[in-house]
Design a protein around this nucleic acid. Structure first.
Length: 424
RNA sequence: GGAGAGAUGGCCGAGCGGCUCAAGGCGCCGGUCUUGAAAACCGGUGAUGGGGCGACUCAUCCGUGGGUUCGAAUCCCACUCUCUCCGCCA
C-alpha cells in the first residue's frame, strides 16, 4: 500500500511505477473512487453534525419540540443510511484497488521487464564447473542417494511431487546450516523468535503476499488462515497495529520457519532435485526502521552482508544481483538477489533475496512509530534470507564432493555435525 | 470439547440510553517551588479521515459486525479473542 495522497498528487509517478513493474492497475479508477469516497464522507459528516446537534437539543426539549425535531431528522436519517451503504461499498472497492497499487521503485533500480535484465553487481569466489573436479562429477541427488542422506522417491511417495526426505547426515547437515545461521544472527544483535507459520489472511495481505500472490500459498480457508512461504510474514507482522517509539528502532529480528510454497505456475520448471520444492526451512532476517531512505538503504546493505558473510563461512562462490523493476514484485523499492554457484545447473542459482519495501508493508500492516517530537510516521521494513535449506545443500554437497563420493564438511559446520569432517 | 466470567484511551479502572465532546488514578510532557533532584501543587497529554495557508474546525473510533432508537460505550443478536474450572492431549 502506498499513501493515497501520493496518487492524488502525482498520479503519473504511480502510473510510471506500474509500467516499470509490468503491472496492470487502473490509477484513474483509483482516483475516481477516491473522489467519490471523499464526497460521500463530506456529506455524511455534514448530516451527522446536524444530527448530533439535534440530539443535544432533544435532551432538554419539551414534548412538542421533540416531535418537531424527530420529524426534521427523519429525512436526514434516511439519507445517512443511504450514504452509509454506498460508502461501505466505495470503501471496500477502494481498498481492493489500493491493494493492487505498486510501491514506487527506487530511481537507482535497473529498469527491465524480466529476470533477464537483472544486473550483476559482483562475484565472489571461483565457480567450479562439472568438468573441473578432476573426477566424474555427481550431482546432489546422486551423491545424496548413494550416501543414503537424500531420498527423493520416498518424499514423493509421502507427499507428491516436489517433496523429499533427508535422513542421517543429510538431516544433520540441513540442521547444521540453519544452526550456523541462527547463531551468527544472534551474535550480530538480531533477536531470535519462533513464530506461527499458519497465519491469518490479513497478515498475508499486510506483508503483500495477498491478493496477488495468493495462488502461491497453501490456504486453510475454513479457518481464514494460510501457511506462510517465509517467516517474513509473521515477523514483519509482529508489530502490526502498533505505534512504536523511535528510540526502540531499529527492530532487528530473525526467525526460523518452515516455508510452504505451492510453486503454482512453475509448471515443469526445476523439477529435479532439491531446488524447487514445496517445503523447506529458512532463517529469515527482518528489519523495521525509521522512515528515512538513507537509513533503509544502510540496513539493506547490512542484511546483504549478513547473508554473504554466511556464504563466505560456508566457502561457497556466489554473485550479487540487483533485481530489475519488472522482476522485483509489487511492494519493493529495491531488491537484490544472491545466487550461489551450483555445478549441476552449470549456473548460479538463487539462494537469497534481500528486499527493501520502505512503507509499503507498514501501511498495510498499520505499523508506525512516534518520533521524539510526538509526530507519527509509517515505519520502513526490509528482509533477507540468512539461509534456506535444503536448497543451499545443492552447492554445499556438490562443491564439497570428493573422488570417492564422500562429502567434505566445511569447517564452520563441523561443530554442528558432531565434529565430523566428512560424510561417507 | 463442556460450564462460567470478561473485552473501555500508553496502563489500571468507573460509566450500563441524552450534563460523557469517556470520571478518577498511574504514566508521560510543561510549569511553580528547590542549590540540584525528589515530593507537593498547577496545566497539558489518543488515533484515523474530511475541510482550511493557518490559529482551527467537522466527523468517526469504548473487541468486530449487524440491529433497536430522534439519540448507543450503555439495550438486542451474531462472531472473535482473553481468563477461570472440567475433559482430552505433545
Amino acid at each position: 500500500m502506498i499513501d493515497i495522497r501520493l496518487i492524488r498528487d502525482q498520479p503519473d509517478l504511480v502510473k510510471d511505477a506500474a509500467r516499470k513493474k509490468g503491472m496492470k492497475v487502473d490509477i484513474d479508477q483509483v482516483l475516481a473512487v477516491d473522489a467519490r469516497r471523499r464526497a460521500l464522507e463530506t456529506e455524511f459528516n455534514e448530516l451527522r453534525s446536524r444530527q448530533n446537534a439535534a440530539g443535544e437539543k432533544m435532551a432538554k426539549a419539551s414534548k412538542e419540540q421533540r416531535e418537531a425535531i424527530k420529524a426534521e431528522m427523519t429525512p436526514i436519517k434516511a439519507r445517512l443510511a443511504e450514504i452509509d451503504a454506498e460508502k461501505q461499498q466505495v470503501d471496500e472497492s477502494l481498498r481492493q484497488l489500493m491493494l493492487l497499487v505498486p510501491q514506487i521503485p527506487d530511481a537507482a533500480a535497473p529498469i527491465g521487464a524480466s529476470d533477464a535484465e537483472n544486473v550483476e553487481v559482483r562475484r565472489v569466489g571461483t565457480p567450479r564447473r562439472k568438468d573441473e573436479f578432476g573426477f566424474p562429477f555427481k550431482d546432489h541427488v546422486e551423491l545424496g542417494t548413494r550416501l543414503g542422506i537424500i531420498d527423493m522417491d520416498r518424499g514423493v511417495k509421502l507427499a507428491g511431487s516436489r517433496n523429499y526426505v533427508l535422513k542421517g547426515a543429510g538431516a544433520m547437515l540441513h540442521e547444521a546450516v540453519l544452526r550456523l545461521a541462527w547463531d551468527m544472527m544472534i551474535e550480530r544483535g538480531f533477536v531470535p523468535m519462533t513464530v506461527p507459520v499458519l497465519v491469518l489472511d490479513k497478515l498475508m495481505e499486510g506483508t503483500g503476499y495477498f491478493p496477488l500472490g495468493r495462488d502461491q500459498a497453501y490456504l486453510c480457508e475454513r479457518d481464514g488462515q494460510s501457511l506462510v512461504g517465509t517467516a517474513e510474514v509473521p515477523v514483519t507482522g509482529y508489530h502490526m497495529d502498533e505505534i512504536l517509539r523511535e528510540d526502540e528502532l531499529p527492530k532487528l529480528y530473525c526467525a526460523r520457519s518452515t516455508c510452504f510454497r505451492r510453486e503454482a505456475g512453475a509448471g515443469g520448471k526445476d523439477t529435479y532435485g532439491l531446488y524447487r520444492i514445496h517445503l523447506f526451512d529458512k532463517i529469515e532476517q527482518v528489519v523495521i526502521c525509521k522512515a528515512e531512505a538513507a537509513e533503509s538503504a544502510r540496513w539493506h546493505q547490512a542484511i546483504i552482508k549478513n547473508a554473504t558473510d554466511l556464504l563466505d563461512a560456508l566457502e561457497l562462490p556466489y554473485r550479487l544481483l540487483e533485481v530489475c523493476t519488472g522482476d522485483m514484485g509489487q511492494g519493493k523499492v529495491r531488491m537484490f538477489d544472491i545466487e550461489t554457484w551450483m555445478p549441476s545447473r552449470n549456473a548460479y542459482g538463487e539462494t537469497h533475496s534481500a528486499s527493501s519495501f520502505h512503507d509499503f508493508q507498514s501501511r498495510r500492516l498499520n505499523l508506525k512509530y512516534r518520533d521524539a517530537g510526538g509526530k507519527i510516521h509509517v515505519c520502513h521494513t526490509l528482509n533477507n534470507t540468512v539461509v534456506a535449506s535444503p536448497r543451499i545443500l545443492i552447492p554445499l554437497l556438490e562443491l564439497n564432493q570428493q573422488a570417492d563420493g564422500s562429502i567434505r564438511i566445511p569447517e564452520s559446520l563441523r561443530a554442528y555435525m558432531g565434529n565430523r569432517c566428512d560424510i561417507r
